[in-house]
Computed example of a mutant assay.
Amino acid sequence: MSGDDEQTLEERVLAAHIRAPGRGNRKLEKLIAAVNDDVELKGWWHAAAINAERLEMSDHSWVHIQIVTNIGLRLARLLFRRGIVPSCVADHGLTERDAEVIIAAAALFHCVGMSIQRADHEQFSLFLTADKLPKLLAPIYDDPARTIIVAEASHAIISHRSKGAPFTIEGAIVRVADALDMAKGRSRADKMLPNIHSVSSKAIESVKISPGEEKAVRIEIEMSNSAGIYQVDEGLGTKLRGTPLAEHVEVIARIEAEHEARLVPVFKI
């Protein structure tokens, strides 16, 4: 944080600015705009990032929030294009555009609880979301739709925990999107810890999300070292298996490194 040390607290908090493609979804665009104007929410993101640094964890700043939001929307649009029906459409009669709002809202709030404590941060995130999200959505949705959006986003937030079991498409998307923030440079670059989590995270070179052929989504992960398999299998695999997305997503991880014995050249989920 050497560069940040020269900034005031206010400057560091206000620097957060989420960019996500609205694609003509006016409700989503209004939510993103409201979030970017909310200093309290940005303050939670900043505090969460500081706690992650204190614990020598991977980045949990607003950059992580933006990445998860964008990945979530990318996954959603690929899935919806292939006919996968969002749960809010099937169960509440809402629209795909509303599903995008649910996914974005959950991504934006999924780890604000880290501003309080790492352990059980998903539950603390719900505590903060329950107060803030309805206020942000008030100019965008009337009840009962607003209440449904908050409830579905809250389900997605709590479902991203390690033993979370999302039973909605939207919840599964957020859970997987969070796990997919693994590309090179996302872990703390200034310190290599002597554990499999640190080594495996630094082995991930790139993540590509594209339309699949047999399945709706194809996720291709390039690794520089076989240790990355731990990140793919225990991180992403655990978040994907058993969710409503499992049958619609194909994951292929490849080890391209020439300096090591290729014990497992290709790993699939």
Rank of each mutant, 00 (worst) to 15 (best):
M1F: 07
S2T: 14
G3K: 12
L9C: 03
E11V: 00
V13T: 08
L14T: 12
A16D: 08
A16R: 05
H17K: 15
I18A: 08
R19H: 12
N25V: 05
K27N: 15
L28C: 09
N36D: 07
D38E: 14
G43A: 07
W45V: 06
A49V: 00
I50S: 05
I50Y: 04
A52W: 08
L55K: 12
M57H: 13
D59Q: 02
D59N: 15
H60Q: 06
H60T: 09
W62I: 03
V63G: 11
H64T: 06
N70A: 02
L75C: 07
R77C: 02
R77N: 10
L78S: 08
L78H: 10
L79S: 06
F80I: 11
R81K: 12
R81M: 01
R82A: 11
P86C: 10
P86E: 11
C88G: 08
V89E: 13
V89I: 09
A90I: 02
A90K: 09
G93W: 02
G93A: 05
E96H: 13
E100A: 09
V101H: 09
A106C: 05
A107H: 00
A107M: 04
H110D: 08
C111Q: 14
V112W: 05
M114K: 11
A119C: 00
D120M: 14
H121S: 02
Q123D: 13
F124P: 03
S125V: 13
L128Y: 15
A130C: 01
D131K: 15
L133D: 01
L133H: 00
K135E: 11
P139L: 02
I140C: 06
Y141Q: 02
D142G: 07
V150T: 04
A151D: 12
S154F: 01
S154C: 10
H155T: 11
A156Q: 07
I158T: 08
R161G: 06
S162A: 12
K163N: 14
G164T: 03
A165D: 11
F167G: 05
T168I: 03
G171I: 06
V176P: 04
V176A: 10
V176D: 02
A177L: 02
A179Q: 11
A179M: 12
L180G: 02
L180Y: 01
M182A: 15
A183E: 15
R186G: 01
R186H: 13
K191V: 14
M192C: 01
M192I: 13
H197P: 00
H197D: 13
V199C: 07
V199Y: 09
S200T: 10
I204R: 06
I204E: 09
S206C: 03
S206F: 05
S210I: 13
P211I: 10
P211R: 10
E213S: 14
E214N: 11
K215A: 03
R218G: 09
I219S: 04
E220A: 13
E220N: 11
E220R: 14
S224E: 10
S224G: 15
Q231D: 09
E234M: 15
G235C: 07
G235I: 07
L236T: 04
G237T: 06
G237V: 06
G237M: 00
L240A: 03
L240R: 04
T243C: 09
L245F: 05
L245Y: 01
E247L: 10
V249F: 03
E250G: 00
V251A: 04
I255G: 08
E256T: 15
E256L: 15
A257K: 05
A257E: 05
E258A: 12
H259V: 12
H259G: 13
E260K: 02
E260R: 08
P265E: 12
K268T: 15
